[in-house]
Design a protein around this nucleic acid. Structure first.
Lengths: 170, 170
DNA sequence: CTGACTGCAAACCCTTTGCAGACCG
DNA sequence: CGGTCTGCAAAGGGTTTGCAGTCAG
């Protein structure tokens, strides 16, 4: 499924500006990789970006795609779906509940809300398939990470923030 | 963070019955692994279950934990958080949007809803940390998988359904 | 020109699998 | 006791990293 052509070009434009501003080089690979992600409505993985790019760029390699996608992520031009790169988590709470997730360390906590259990979902969604459950995910920075963040922000004043790689199962 | 002791025992009880009903053996390992997941409010990974169990059961191995957790998942006694075990997916749509996810093949589609963009989150959630974004995930079986499912349901009439392992980036 | 970037290959981490011995029922 | 289950070790798949050559600015 493809994104509207004009929208793709708008996103690419935005990417070019942001890249220039961040002082990174606009290589052929980066432009094509970004264009490919921007054009796909189905949130591709690195692998599927590679497959899509192969015909146009036979020599592009998977690791460049990874590096580029994470770079784009750091620049705030794309985001990732679901947990970054963690192990699978298991949940013995069988009641209908929702989650608070810390975007820094992955801490996950349940919460309940009768209101959120009965959300009104747009009718258009039914076209995708059956609707079995709806689940709300609240994202933020947990208190512990917030504390660490302020502590270390004393020294860092660089433009680009590193992609948090620390793991944590508190 | 620990789950209420009585609640844990209630869950373990439920597990014992369900296991008997399913005809699987109640080994020491299975009971302890289940108890550990049931007792953790933070949705542990296999690795953290292992660490928690090491003191009590020094010889338990990581692969047994994996096998047991997936077994519990198949029995409907635990569930998994986030995408089962896929590669990271990237998203170039920077607008506030929500997701429809097929639980069979992982197909993911965006949808928008002004109503869902401004949900009322319980105040208790603020205790966990800052609230930066809220995101609704609708789960179901996509039309394509639903078709396949009915086609193959002719032959299968086994009690326990296999854990869907197929991957798919449509 | 020169430092940033790419491609290659090998390393890494989490997870799964094959097999021989151990244990539940 | 027999078949299920465990532990071990090794394989597997996705992702990352070190290095030497390449390219954008």
């Amino acid at each position: 499924m493809e994104v509207d052509r004009a929208e793709v070009e708008r996103r690419v434009e935005h990417f070019m500006e942001a890249a220039k501003e961040a002082g990174i080089k606009l290589t052929h690979q980066r432009i094509e990789i970004f264009r490919q992600v921007a054009a796909s409505a189905d949130h591709p993985s690195a692998e599927s970006v590679l497959k899509a790019l192969q015909p146009r760029m036979p020599t592009v390699s998977l690791d460049t795609i990874y590096r580029t996608l994470w770079l784009l992520n750091d620049l705030g031009l794309v985001s990732t779906l679901g947990p970054k790169r963690e192990s699978v988590r298991f949940d013995a709470n069988l009641t209908h509940h929702h989650h608070y997730v810390c975007v820094r360390c992955g801490l996950t906590r349940d919460f309940e809300s009768a209101e959120l259990n009965s959300l009104h979902i747009p009718e258009s969604v039914a076209e995708f398939g059956s609707i079995d459950a709806t689940h709300v995910e609240v994202r933020g920075v947990c208190s512990r990470c917030a504390k660490e963040q302020t502590e270390e922000s004393e020294r860092n004043k660089s433009a680009i923030k590193p992609r948090g790689q620390e793991k944590n199962t508190p």
